[in-house]
Every structure is written in C-alpha cells, then in structure tokens.
C-alpha cells in the first residue's frame, strides 16, 4: 500500500509544524491530491487515520479536507494544453500503475496529442500537496 508512505509524509509534516509552532492540537489539514497520481482514497484515508492515532491527542480534533486537482498538461514544443482525460484512453493498467508510483513516468508514456512531443509540463494535478495546517496552542 504505497498510499501509506504518502499519508506518512502528510502526518510527519503536520507533526513538524506542531513542534515548530508549539501546537498542542492540529485542528485542520487542507491538502490536494493530483489526479495524475490516482491515489486510492480509501487506502489513503485509512492510512491517515491510523497514523494520526500514533501521536496521542495531537490529531484528536483534526479535520482533514482533501480536494482532487484535475491534471492539466502543456506542451513545451507547440504550446497545446490538454487534460489527462484526453489521453488516458491510451494508457493501459500497467502504465497507470507506473505513473501512480512516480508521476514523472508520464513523460515515458504520454505524448502531446497535437504534435506528439514528450516535452511537456504537468501544469497542475501532479501529486500530493499541503495547502494549510492549522492548530491550537
């Protein structure tokens, strides 16, 4: 369950914030998941809940807000922009699994739909990010 490692990263970040800011409780974590990485939400939520339990009362009042960001690509060669849904029909299950582990692998398997270049930016919706962590002293 690779989602566990990513959930671990989120909780570790919150613990560091709590230590740095002398927070007794983390009350809110707002975060984003990029569509490209296809995080399995059930596994991810379970991992977050289990990991929060290992830190005493620190996360006893925590509300976690997770939004999913649609993936958008932009070709560096021709400037064309497209969405993951425009190309995902060309990706088989094994390929999607590879991108799930390392999103940059998208450059191996995805091409600009207009000019076929592999030289594109993942403008948004790549992977995991934390927007805010709030707590009380």
């Amino acid at each position: 369950m690779h989602e566990w490692a990513l959930a671990d990263a989120v909780i570790q970040t919150a613990v560091e914030v709590a230590q740095r800011e002398s927070l007794k409780k983390i009350t809110s974590i707002k975060m984003s998941l990029g569509e490209l990485q296809e995080i399995e939400r059930e596994f991810f939520d379970t991992a977050l809940n289990e990991l929060m339990k290992t830190h005493g009362d620190l996360f006893s009042k925590t509300k976690i807000n997770i939004k999913t960001i649609k993936t958008r690509f932009k070709c560096r060669a021709c400037g064309h922009q497209w969405k993951l849904s425009d190309t995902e029909k060309t990706l088989d299950e094994e390929t999607r699994e590879s991108i799930h582990f390392i999103p940059e692998v998208a450059h191996v398997f995805i091409r600009c739909p207009k000019c076929k270049s592999p030289d594109f930016d993942i403008v948004e919706g790549r992977g995991i990010g934390i927007d805010s962590i709030v707590g009380e002293k």
């Binding site: 690779h2 490692a5 692998v105 450059h107 191996v108 030289d119 992977g127």
Partner: peptide, 26 residues
Amino acid sequence: YTNENPTPLRGEEVSNAIKEILCITR
C-alpha cells in the same frame, strides 16, 4: 516503472521523481 523505454525528463521533473522515490522507498 519505465519498462526500459526512453525517459525524457527536464531538471525539475528529475528532482520531483527523486523526491518521490525517496519518499516511498523503504
């Protein structure tokens, strides 16, 4: 994860991939 295909990555993408590998590898 690349199945020996060409892996064209720019610098920032290399950095991102390194961080991802280090984050998830136990």
